[in-house]
Amino acid sequence: INGRLFSSADTIREARRMILTFGTAWVYRLKSSGKIVSNCHKLPEKMFDRNILTVGEIVTEWKSLLLSLWEQNPELKILFTVSPIRHWKDGAHGNQLSKATLLLAIDALQKEFPEHTAYFPAYEIMMDELRDYRFYADDMLHPSPAAIEYIWERFTGSMLSPDSLSIIKEWKDIQKAINHKPFQPESEAYKRFISQTLLKMERLNEKFPYFDMTNEVEMIKKKF
Rank of each mutant, 00 (worst) to 15 (best):
F6R: 10
F6P: 05
S7N: 12
S7Y: 14
A9H: 08
A9N: 06
A9D: 06
D10V: 07
D10M: 13
I12P: 01
I12Y: 04
E14Y: 09
E14I: 08
A15Y: 01
A15C: 11
R16Y: 04
R16T: 15
R16L: 10
R17N: 14
R17L: 12
R17D: 14
R17C: 13
I19M: 09
I19K: 03
I19V: 12
I19P: 00
I19E: 01
L20I: 15
L20V: 14
L20A: 07
L20D: 04
L20K: 00
T21G: 02
T21P: 05
T21H: 02
F22S: 05
G23Y: 02
G23C: 09
G23K: 09
T24F: 06
T24I: 05
A25V: 00
W26D: 01
W26R: 00
W26E: 00
W26S: 01
V27P: 07
V27W: 00
Y28G: 02
L30H: 07
L30R: 05
K31P: 11
S32C: 12
S32I: 12
S32R: 00
S32P: 10
S33A: 09
S33H: 09
S33W: 10
G34T: 08
G34C: 09
K35P: 04
I36Y: 03
I36D: 05
I36W: 01
S38F: 12
N39P: 06
N39K: 03
C40W: 03
C40D: 02
C40A: 11
H41G: 14
H41D: 12
K42M: 14
P44S: 10
P44L: 04
P44F: 04
E45A: 10
E45L: 12
E45S: 09
K46A: 11
K46H: 08
M47S: 01
F48I: 01
F48M: 00
D49G: 03
D49M: 03
N51W: 07
N51G: 09
N51S: 13
N51E: 13
I52L: 08
I52A: 10
L53I: 12
L53V: 13
T54S: 15
T54W: 03
V55G: 04
V55R: 14
E57S: 13
E57N: 05
I58G: 15
V59K: 07
V59W: 07
E61G: 15
W62V: 08
W62M: 14
W62L: 15
K63E: 14
K63P: 02
K63W: 11
S64L: 08
S64V: 02
L65F: 10
L65K: 11
L67I: 09
L67G: 03
S68T: 10
S68P: 02
S68K: 12
L69P: 09
L69W: 04
L69A: 15
W70N: 03
W70Q: 00
W70P: 02
E71F: 01
E71C: 05
N73R: 13
N73L: 11
P74W: 01
P74D: 10
P74E: 06
E75G: 15
E75D: 11
L76W: 04
K77G: 05
